[in-house]
Amino acid sequence: MFTEKISPRFSETDVLGHINNTVLPIWFEAARVPIFKFFTPDLNPHDWKLIIAKVEVSFVGELFYGHEVEIKTSVEHIGSSSFVVRQEAWQQGTCCAVGKTVLVRYDFNNKCSKKLDEDEKTALAAHLFASE
């Protein structure tokens, strides 16, 4: 599992004083960088190997400005050419949001999915989600 700490910005709050729901997918994407490096170690966008097939966020609590947020990133499922990244946003000891993103290993030249190789599967498997 990877973890990243985020300090919410005042501009990320909504009129109700919560972190706006549009912010979580951005935070989750930033916290997926270690996963991206399994495929493109230098993060060169001209050598990118992944596309997003699906993103979902379930809000299970409120997030607020003024308190650090910890994003926990793990791998929930590994398929033949795709995998699911599970992410949780924790604030003050409470899980406030759970995100799941389906990423596909992609061949941009041929415009099609590509099977994950064994090294990629091994790297992903080292971070499989373990329910507590």
Rank of each mutant, 00 (worst) to 15 (best):
V33C: 05
I78F: 13
D107S: 10
K72D: 08
F108W: 15
N109V: 15
H67A: 15
R105H: 15
T122E: 09
A130D: 12
K111W: 12
E120L: 05
T73R: 08
E132Y: 02
I71M: 08
E56G: 07
G61N: 08
T94W: 07
G99H: 02
F129L: 09
F64V: 10
R9S: 05
T40K: 00
E68C: 07
G61R: 06
F83M: 01
A53F: 08
D42N: 09
R32A: 12
V84Y: 01
I71K: 00
G79Q: 10
G99D: 00
L16V: 01
F129I: 05
G66F: 14
D107P: 01
T101I: 10
A123S: 14
S80M: 03
A89T: 08
D119P: 00
Q87Y: 13
E29C: 12
S11Y: 06
L124S: 08
N44A: 05
D107R: 13
R32W: 09
F38H: 04
V75Q: 06
P25Q: 03
S7A: 11
D14T: 12
L50M: 04
V23D: 00
I26E: 03
R86C: 01
V102D: 03
E88Y: 03
F129G: 00
E76Y: 03
K54S: 13
I26A: 07
A126Q: 14
Q92V: 11
E76I: 03
K54R: 15
A126T: 10
I19Y: 00
W48Y: 14
A123T: 00
K49F: 04
E76F: 09
F83W: 07
V104E: 13
V57K: 04
H18R: 12
N20T: 02
A123V: 04
L124V: 10
N110Y: 14
L43W: 04
V55P: 00
T73Q: 02
E56Y: 05
H67I: 08
S74Y: 01
E12L: 02
H18K: 07
N109H: 14
E132P: 06
S58L: 11
E4V: 05
V85A: 05
L116F: 03
E62F: 06
K100W: 01
G17Q: 03
D14V: 03
S80R: 12
E62R: 05
R105S: 15
L50G: 03
D42Y: 02
G99F: 04
N21C: 09
D42P: 01
V33D: 05
E56V: 10
E12G: 01
W27S: 00
E76N: 08
A130L: 09
H46C: 11
I6V: 14
S131L: 15
R32N: 12
K115V: 12
K72H: 06
P45K: 04
R9P: 04
V15P: 01
S80D: 11
V84K: 06
T3I: 11
E68T: 10
A30T: 07
L128T: 03
C112G: 11
S82R: 08
N21L: 02
W48Q: 01
K72G: 07
V102N: 00
A31E: 09
R86Q: 07
E29P: 04
A97V: 09
F59W: 04
F39A: 13
L128Y: 07
T73I: 10
K54L: 11
L124W: 03
F36I: 02
H67Y: 15
A97C: 09
L16W: 10
A126L: 14
F129C: 00
V15T: 13
A31Q: 05
R105A: 06
E76A: 10
I52M: 13
E4N: 05
A31L: 05
K115P: 00
F2S: 06
